[in-house]
Simulated scan of single mutants.
Amino acid sequence: MSHTVHDQKALLTRVRRIAGQAAALEKALEQGSECSAVLQQIAAIRGAVNGLMAQVLEGHVREHLGAENATPQQRQEDIEVVLTVLRSYLK
């Protein structure tokens, strides 16, 4: 079973929290809120996305790279996947 399926409830909770934060940001912008409140909301969203990324990435590394039955070729392919995602995420 995939770690994203195993952790589905927790991951969906995080995603829904992020969606709520994004909706609050949109509302703040529409209402002309102070820039400090807008910046604080953006920082909160970024932190939430980073937490989600860390949780999914950790599960991926543990399940795929840490799998006892993974072949060296499978590990290398998974390393490339992780590195590609990290490069994209860190841009």
Rank of each mutant, 00 (worst) to 15 (best):
M1S: 11
M1D: 11
M1R: 07
S2H: 11
S2R: 10
H3S: 10
H3Q: 11
H3I: 06
T4Q: 08
T4G: 05
V5P: 03
V5Q: 15
H6I: 08
H6G: 03
D7R: 03
D7P: 01
D7H: 05
D7T: 03
Q8E: 14
Q8L: 14
K9G: 04
L11T: 01
L12V: 11
L12F: 05
T13C: 08
V15W: 02
V15S: 06
R16C: 09
R17G: 09
I18S: 04
A19V: 10
G20E: 05
G20Y: 00
Q21K: 06
Q21R: 05
A22K: 03
A22E: 07
A23E: 10
A23N: 12
A24P: 03
A24M: 07
A24K: 10
A24D: 14
E26S: 10
L29F: 06
E30I: 10
E30A: 15
Q31C: 13
Q31A: 15
Q31E: 15
Q31I: 08
G32L: 06
G32C: 08
G32N: 11
G32D: 10
S33Y: 09
S33L: 12
E34G: 14
E34N: 14
S36Q: 15
S36A: 13
S36F: 12
A37C: 12
V38D: 06
L39M: 11
L39P: 02
Q40R: 15
Q41K: 14
I45N: 07
I45E: 07
I45A: 07
I45F: 02
R46H: 13
G47P: 06
G47F: 07
G47N: 11
V49P: 01
N50T: 14
G51D: 08
L52T: 00
L52N: 01
M53G: 09
M53K: 14
M53I: 14
V56S: 03
L57W: 02
L57P: 00
L57G: 07
L57Y: 05
L57E: 12
E58Q: 14
G59S: 09
G59I: 04
G59T: 07
H60P: 00
H60C: 04
V61P: 00
V61I: 09
E63C: 01
E63R: 00
E63Q: 05
H64P: 04
L65S: 04
A67H: 03
E68D: 15
E68Q: 13
N69G: 13
A70G: 01
A70T: 00
A70M: 01
A70K: 01
T71V: 00
P72V: 02
Q73R: 13
Q73H: 12
Q74E: 04
Q76F: 00
Q76I: 00
Q76E: 11
E77W: 01
E80K: 09
V81A: 12
V81T: 13
V82Q: 02
V82E: 03
V82M: 04
V82T: 09
V82F: 02
L83H: 12
L83S: 12
T84N: 14
L86S: 06
L86M: 12
R87G: 14
S88L: 15
Y89M: 10
Y89K: 11
Y89D: 08
K91T: 11
